[in-house]
């Protein structure tokens, strides 16, 4: 095989596709030489977070010193429940304001922007609890996502001639996306009649209507059946192929390992580790965060032998004292318990 030792997992898959240089491989190649350290600088950051702190009363929900997110890559954000992942999402998209810190997108500071202003810059998000607009049809849901619509201004709305051609173009685009997400047959159904997984698909498709630069997905796979998960994964990978930057929160480690170029681990509001997916499962801080810091380390063969010898010695010791001294002692101890 080649002289260059190829790593396993995602790397192997990406090198196998050859040198056609689609964007996904650019991001991954760029990140290959980045050290696996918290707060490390990326070659081409799209989002830069600096000293963002958010407290709720006495609880520090998020306290991120420095975090950069690589452009054109898929960054997975993982961590135990209550780690502050969704709060960080809310802060980055303007749905919540931090106590301090700065964060920027493409060099433009995002602080003090409201959610719709952040969205107009090209950073769209989805929600953990899917927000399908139930009493609108699937197609209307999609059309809402389009940006810069002339007919959305009150007075221009009254003159259909102004917005009709734009509406038609948007409808074509929406149908194209719906076909990709296999929702085109449902276009005239109320979004409220869709299944949970279909709503996730619709929400993602709706976000794409705005031609975003960054897509932030909050648990896109939660509550989705395994068959649909595969198709959702495919769509997320497609986003990367089209040059979008994807940040997603996910609990399923298989999914994270499968699609992310880079993984950021949060716990108790802090970023505790980052690196390519294969680095994460070996990371001491990550294991501590998920299993608790005082977990038992696995035994090595030597340790096992030593522990066994100690145990045998103490048993032998006990037996000797029992024989010599008071005979009922061991039994009494047991009943005390």
């Amino acid at each position: 095989m080649p002289a260059e030792p190829t790593p396993t997992g995602a790397h192997a898959a990406s090198t196998a596709t050859g040198a056609g240089a689609p964007p996904q491989r650019l991001a991954q190649a760029a990140l290959r030489d980045v050290p696996w350290e918290v707060g490390v600088a990326k070659p081409e950051p799209a989002i830069v977070v600096d000293g963002v702190v958010r407290t709720f009363g006495g609880l520090t929900a998020v306290s991120v010193d420095h975090l950069e997110i690589q452009r054109g890559g898929i960054t997975g954000l993982i961590g135990p429940n209550g780690a502050g992942k969704t709060t960080l999402f809310n802060l980055l998209t303007g749905f919540d304001q931090p106590d301090g810190g700065t964060w920027s997108f493409d060099g433009r500071p995002l602080g003090k922007l409201s959610p719709h202003q952040v969205a107009r810059l090209g950073v769209v998000r989805t929600f953990q609890l899917t927000k399908a607009l139930s009493r609108l049809t699937v197609l209307q849901n999609m059309l809402l996502g389009a940006q810069g619509q002339k007919g959305e201004s009150f007075f221009r709305a009254l003159v259909p001639g102004i917005w009709r051609s734009q509406e038609k173009a948007n409808t074509d685009k929406a149908m194209e996306l719906l076909r990709r997400f296999k929702l085109d047959a449902k276009k005239d159904d109320f979004a409220g009649t869709l299944s949970g997984g279909q709503r996730k698909l619709l929400e993602m498709a709706r976000a794409l209507m705005s031609d975003p630069k960054v897509v932030m997905l909050d648990e896109p796979m939660a509550g989705v059946n395994p068959a649909l998960t595969q198709s959702l994964l495919g769509h997320v990978k497609d986003l990367r192929e089209q040059g979008m930057t994807v940040v997603f929160v996910e609990h399923d480690m298989d999914v994270v390992r499968d699609i992310s170029d880079w993984v950021v681990v949060m716990a108790a509001g802090k970023v505790i580790a980052e690196g390519p997916p294969e680095s994460i499962s070996q990371n001491r801080a990550v294991v501590d965060a998920y299993l608790g810091a005082h977990h038992d380390a696995p035994l090595t063969v030597e340790e096992e032998d030593r522990v066994l010898a100690e145990a045998e010695a103490s048993i032998a010791d006990d037996e000797r004292t029992d024989d010599v001294g008071r005979p009922g002692r061991g039994e009494k101890k047991r009943t005390d318990r």
Partner: peptide
Amino acid sequence: LVWLLVRSPWGRVVKSIREDEDAVRALGKN
């Protein structure tokens, strides 16, 4: 007036606000 408004994109935004305003914010509408 109402008929003209609710069949326009303006009406669509307004109906979406009725359903879930955060979703509408996330899509760049004030």
